[in-house]
Nucleic acid binder design. Structure first.
Length: 275
DNA sequence: TATAATGTTTGAAC
DNA sequence: AGTTCAAACATTAT
């Protein structure tokens, strides 16, 4: 589950704010939650955070985790089940932790946060010049919330080969990379909410490039050894990307970006989880 | 039907 | 001692 999906989760959990957990079940074995009131719901990158008095429940959905509200999956044992009034919340195959001390999160690196700081990201991406751009986009310290789908779509849109080293990116490309990492994540959220995400993926698990009809390559890349999908024709390993293309498509303000920038769906966050 | 994978942590190996 | 690496995890989609 990537960052935008967690934004949807925070919205779906909003009705439970201010309500008390009456029962707790599951293999996570967290009886300490019983009787506590849900005080905040937020996310940082791919961390889903439920704030209670004195502690925070941190859920990470990893590759195949999920949650359900009032719809228990058949033949599946939830890792954690919370009863709140008549409602039941189920968490499946996820990593769950109780944070007893307030964890310090830097929201300025979260692409889905209203505190997202593109200038900070721009500085950070140049630190390791040997890093491949595919690995860079997956760095949760720089682009918290970005996962493998967003990585591949961003690189396709920018026509950058996933194995390009940071040293080989020009200044305009770096700016476009930071901007598109943010803007595409919000586009992902919009499509996901409308149930149109899959149909709008251009490169991830596709076979043929929509732009040039060339075959799409699927290859394990970089230090992280994650799969990259790219067009072998329009994302060349060594090429100077037409700077007019970048300016036209990614560096001019767009209606889409403007609209999304105007109003963040998330509440303002400080830099730490409230205990 | 078998395999891959919206991801991270862990602990062994180096 | 610090870094690197593969395994483990769980379950859906292809």
């Amino acid at each position: 589950m990537e960052g935008p999906s967690l934004i949807i989760a925070t919205e779906e959990f909003a009705p439970f704010l201010g309500r008390k957990v009456s029962c707790v079940y599951g293999s996570a074995n967290l009886p300490s939650l019983k009787g506590l009131t849900l005080e905040s719901v937020s996310s940082w990158g791919k961390h889903f955070l439920l704030g209670f008095t004195g502690l925070t429940l941190r859920v990470h959905f990893l590759l195949s985790g999920s949650y359900r509200i009032n719809q228990r999956r058949e033949n599946r044992e939830p890792k954690l089940e919370l009863k709140i009034g008549k409602d039941r919340i189920y968490f499946y195959s996820c990593s769950i932790r109780i944070l007893e001390k307030p964890e310090v999160y830097d929201w300025s690196v979260d692409v889905m946060s209203s505190s997202w700081d593109p200038k900070k990201a721009l500085k950070a991406i140049s630190l390791d010049r040997d890093e491949m751009v595919a690995d860079l986009l997956m760095s949760q310290k720089i682009f918290a919330g970005i996962g493998n789908i967003i990585k591949n779509e961003v690189l396709y849109n920018l026509r950058i080969h996933p194995e390009t080293r940071i040293r080989d990116l020009g200044a305009k490309e770096k700016i476009a990379l930071v901007k598109e990492a943010h803007d595409y994540s919000w586009q992902f959220l919009e499509w996901k909410k409308k149930g149109e995400l899959k149909r709008n993926l251009k490169i991830f698990r596709r076979r043929q490039c929509q732009r040039c009809l060339a075959p799409i390559v699927r290859e394990v890349t970089g230090r992280l050894k994650r799969v990259s999908w790219y067009c072998e024709l329009c994302q060349q390993p060594v090429q100077t990307i037409d700077s007019n293309f970048l300016i036209e498509h990614f560096l001019k303000p767009k209606a889409r970006s403007k609209k999304l920038r105007k109003k963040s769906l998330r509440p303002q966050q400080g830099d730490k989880v409230k205990p």
